[in-house]
Simulated assay, not measured.
Amino acid sequence: MIRMVIGDPAPLFRCGLVAMLDQMSDFEVVAATDSAKDVVRAGLELRPDVALLDVDLLDMDGFAASDTLHDEVPECLSVLMTARSRPGDVRRAAAAHAQGLVLKDTSPDGLAAAIRKVARGQRVVDPDLAFTELSAAENPLTDREHEVLVLASEGKSADQIAETLLLAIGTVRNHLSRINRKIGARNRVHAIRIAEEAGWL
């Protein structure tokens, strides 16, 4: 029996998953919620075998929830679900210690098979997601430029970025200008959007 916790922000989809999996003799859904914090709490209290998580949970994204489960309930393996194929998701899933990444339009049998494989210790990645990852543009940013852009994406000003990274304000502005030139961005906001869509953030 594979004991599961489900995290998905859409009530109809979440209830559908519970109903579908409960019909299968080798699955038991022990908790279902829209909250990443509740997923982690259920993991600690109920010790499920697998967590099936949408990447866009309400209070924390599914990647962060998977990473937290790995740290706090290492025996609970995570399968992440996403509604769209985005560059960078496979890397983010691996960094979050997820064992699986599937599209939400996967067939019921396909999803069940993926969960069973993960429960046996295998890794599962939807082929469409894998091809999206392979075809994604190479990140042209240096490690320092990436650090600067990450902080900019968090809403920090150039002064705050300089203070955080212990750099001169002029150096930060130079990094931001180089980032814009490298990726063809009009400004900082445009650069952040380009980087997010490419999976670099």
Rank of each mutant, 00 (worst) to 15 (best):
I2P: 01
V5W: 09
I6Q: 04
P9M: 08
A10H: 14
F13R: 09
S25V: 05
V30K: 09
V30A: 14
A31Q: 07
T33W: 14
T33F: 12
T33I: 14
T33K: 13
D34S: 15
D34L: 09
S35H: 11
A36W: 11
V39W: 08
V39K: 10
V39E: 05
R41H: 15
G43R: 13
L44N: 14
E45Q: 15
P48I: 12
P48V: 08
D49Y: 08
A51C: 13
D56S: 13
L58V: 09
D61I: 11
G62P: 07
G62Q: 12
A65D: 07
S66V: 06
S66H: 06
T68D: 12
T68P: 06
E72G: 05
V73G: 10
V73S: 11
C76N: 07
M81R: 06
M81N: 03
A83P: 05
A83W: 06
S85R: 04
D89Q: 12
D89H: 10
D89K: 00
V90K: 02
R91V: 09
R91F: 10
A93M: 08
A94W: 02
A94P: 00
H97W: 12
H97M: 13
A98C: 02
V102T: 02
K104M: 12
K104S: 14
D105I: 13
T106R: 12
G110Y: 00
G110L: 01
L111T: 03
A112R: 03
A112Y: 02
A112E: 06
A113G: 04
K117E: 14
K117Y: 00
G121E: 01
Q122S: 07
Q122D: 14
R123L: 00
V125E: 03
V125N: 03
D126Y: 02
D128R: 15
L129I: 06
A130K: 04
F131P: 00
F131S: 09
T132K: 07
E133H: 11
A137C: 07
L141W: 05
T142Q: 09
T142W: 04
D143T: 06
R144H: 06
R144L: 15
E145C: 01
H146V: 01
H146L: 07
V148W: 01
V148Q: 01
L149N: 02
G155K: 08
G155F: 08
K156W: 10
S157N: 05
A158I: 01
D159A: 13
Q160W: 00
I161N: 03
I161D: 02
T164Y: 07
L165N: 08
L166A: 14
I169N: 12
I169G: 12
G170N: 15
V172Q: 04
V172P: 01
R173D: 08
N174I: 05
N174R: 11
H175D: 11
H175L: 00
L176A: 10
L176I: 14
L176G: 02
S177K: 09
I179E: 05
I179G: 04
K182I: 03
R188E: 11
V189P: 00
H190E: 11
R193K: 15
I194W: 08
E197D: 15
E197G: 06
A198F: 02
G199T: 12
G199N: 13
W200N: 02
W200Y: 04
W200G: 05
L201C: 10
